[in-house]
Simulated assay, not measured.
Amino acid sequence: MKDNPEILYNAIKAHPKEFLDTVNEAVELAKAEMQKQAMEEEFKNRKEPVIEEDRAIFGPKDAKITIVEYSDFQCPFCSRGYDTMKALEQKYGDKIRVIYKHLPLEMHPQAMPAAQYFEAIALQDHGKAQKFHDMVFENQQELNEKKEKFLDEAAKKVGADLAKVKKDIKTDAVNDRIKKDMAEAQKFGFSGTPGFLVNGIAVRGAVPPQHFESIIERLESDKE
Rank of each mutant, 00 (worst) to 15 (best):
F190H: 11
G192N: 14
E138H: 15
A173T: 07
I121A: 04
A154H: 09
E142L: 06
N139M: 10
H126Q: 10
V165W: 03
D168M: 02
E145D: 14
G127H: 13
E106K: 14
E106W: 13
F132S: 07
Q140S: 10
L105H: 03
K146V: 12
R97I: 00
Q110N: 11
L143C: 10
K149M: 07
V165G: 01
S191L: 11
D168Q: 08
D125T: 15
E142Y: 15
I178L: 03
K149P: 04
K156Q: 08
R97P: 04
R97Y: 12
V165E: 07
K170M: 06
H126A: 11
E145F: 11
I96E: 02
E145L: 13
G127W: 06
P113M: 09
D176H: 05
L162Q: 11
I99N: 08
L123D: 01
Q186N: 15
E142Q: 13
G189Q: 06
Q141P: 10
N175P: 03
G127T: 12
E106Q: 14
K167V: 12
M182E: 12
H133L: 06
N144P: 11
Q124S: 05
N139Y: 10
F137E: 13
K170E: 13
K101W: 00
Q110W: 06
F132Q: 09
A120R: 06
K166Y: 08
E106P: 12
D125K: 06
A160D: 01
M182P: 00
F132T: 09
H108I: 10
A129D: 15
F137P: 08
I169P: 00
A155N: 03
A114V: 04
H133R: 09
K187T: 13
A185Y: 07
L143M: 13
N144D: 12
Y100S: 04
I169R: 01
I178M: 06
K166D: 03
R177T: 00
A154C: 11
N139Q: 13
V158K: 06
Q141K: 13
H133K: 05
Q140L: 14
A173Y: 00
D181I: 00
N175W: 01
Q141L: 11
M112L: 15
K147I: 12
Q130L: 11
K170C: 05
E106L: 14
V165H: 02
K101S: 00
G159P: 05
D94N: 14
I99K: 04
D161L: 08
E153V: 14
A173D: 09
P104Q: 15
K179I: 00
A114H: 14
V174N: 04
N139T: 14
A122F: 00
M135Q: 11
Y100D: 03
Q110S: 14
D161I: 05
S191R: 10
E138Y: 14
E138W: 13
K187S: 06
A185G: 15
D172R: 04
Q186M: 13
I121P: 03
D152L: 03
F190P: 04
K149T: 08
D172V: 01
D125M: 05
K128P: 06
L105F: 14
G127M: 03
I178H: 02
K164G: 07
V136D: 08
A154G: 11
K167S: 15
E106H: 13
N139A: 07
P109V: 12
A160T: 05
V158L: 06
A183W: 00
D161R: 09
F118R: 03
P113A: 14
T171A: 05
K95T: 15
I96L: 14
K166P: 12
V174Y: 03
